[in-house]
Structure formats: structure tokens, C-alpha cells
């Protein structure tokens, strides 16, 4: 398990996603209302890039003809066949037990703090004053 610096906090707007390649893996990084989440990028179905999917809310209903949209911006719809994945957990909505993508622990830290720990900043230099997104793999 190592901690990797994968992005600057301000480079990913709320509601957006980004593909990062780290430790030989493709990871889809999402900014959900200011919180960062990372899931494996490849859809378990046919391998589409989840980082390219539409970020959506959860459509629910109490009875036919009644619609409710909750959890705005917390799901990603696969860009191909539209299966929905919970960005927080990587679980699919339709089959959470069996169809899921790996989710990774993400944290945010100041550049200054990073200099002290065993972090791996593979892709770009870290500056002391800025905030960074860290993923544990």
C-alpha cells in the first residue's frame, strides 16, 4: 500500500472526472460536491472508461408515475450501456453485490505535508502551498 499524489485539488471541478494512471492502474477520479473519490476506470461489463461517463443523480420512485431525483452527482453512468455506479463505493446500482468496481481511499493534503511522508508524486512536482489529492493503492 502506497500513497500516490494524483492531482491538484483545483484542477478538477465539482461534478467532473479525470483519468489518472497510477501504479500501473487506470483510475477514474471524481469530484463530488468538493469531495474526491477514486474508482477503477474500466467498467466490469465490457470495459468502457467510466471516467467518460455522465455524472448523474439517483432516479427513484415510490410508485409508477412519481419520480424523485436524489443523490445529485453521486453516480456515474457507464458511457456505453448506461449501468450506474455509485462513485462513493464503486457498487453498481442494479447488482451491487456482484457487479462493482474497485474503489480506492482518497484524501487531500497540503503540499507541505507531503514532503514529510512517504508519498509518491509520479506525474508532477508538488509545491508546498497547494492542496493535493492522494490515493492509496
Amino acid at each position: 500500500m502506497a500513497r500516490h499524489v494524483i492531482a491538484k485539488v483545483d484542477e478538477l471541478e465539482v461534478g467532473k472526472s479525470k483519468l489518472v494512471k497510477v501504479a500501473g492502474r487506470d483510475i477514474a477520479l471524481f469530484n463530488v460536491k468538493g469531495e474526491f473519490f477514486a474508482i477503477a476506470n474500466r467498467c466490469p461489463h465490457e470495459g468502457a472508461d467510466l471516467c467518460r461517463g455522465q455524472v448523474v443523480g439517483l432516479a427513484e420512485s415510490d410508485e409508477p408515475g412519481k419520480y424523485r431525483m436524489t443523490r445529485h452527482g453521486e453516480l456515474v453512468r457507464c458511457p456505453w450501456h448506461g449501468w450506474e455506479f455509485d462513485i462513493r463505493t464503486g457498487k453498481s446500482w442494479c447488482d451491487p453485490a456482484r457487479t462493482r468496481v474497485k474503489s480506492f481511499d482518497v484524501s487531500v493534503a497540503k503540499g507541505g505535508a507531503l514532503a514529510e511522508g512517504p508519498y509518491q508524486a509520479e506525474t508532477f512536482p508538488v509545491s508546498i502551498d497547494e492542496d493535493y489529492v492522494i490515493v492509496e493503492i
Partner: peptide
């Protein structure tokens, strides 16, 4: 198909 388009009929919560 339901997996991909179920948001259209969100009352259908099972396959």
C-alpha cells in the same frame, strides 16, 4: 436492457 435504462422507469427496482 433494464440495467442501462432503468432510470426511465425508476419504479422498476428489480430485474
Amino acid at each position: 436492457t433494464w440495467r442501462g435504462v432503468r432510470a426511465e422507469t425508476p419504479w422498476v427496482t428489480e430485474q
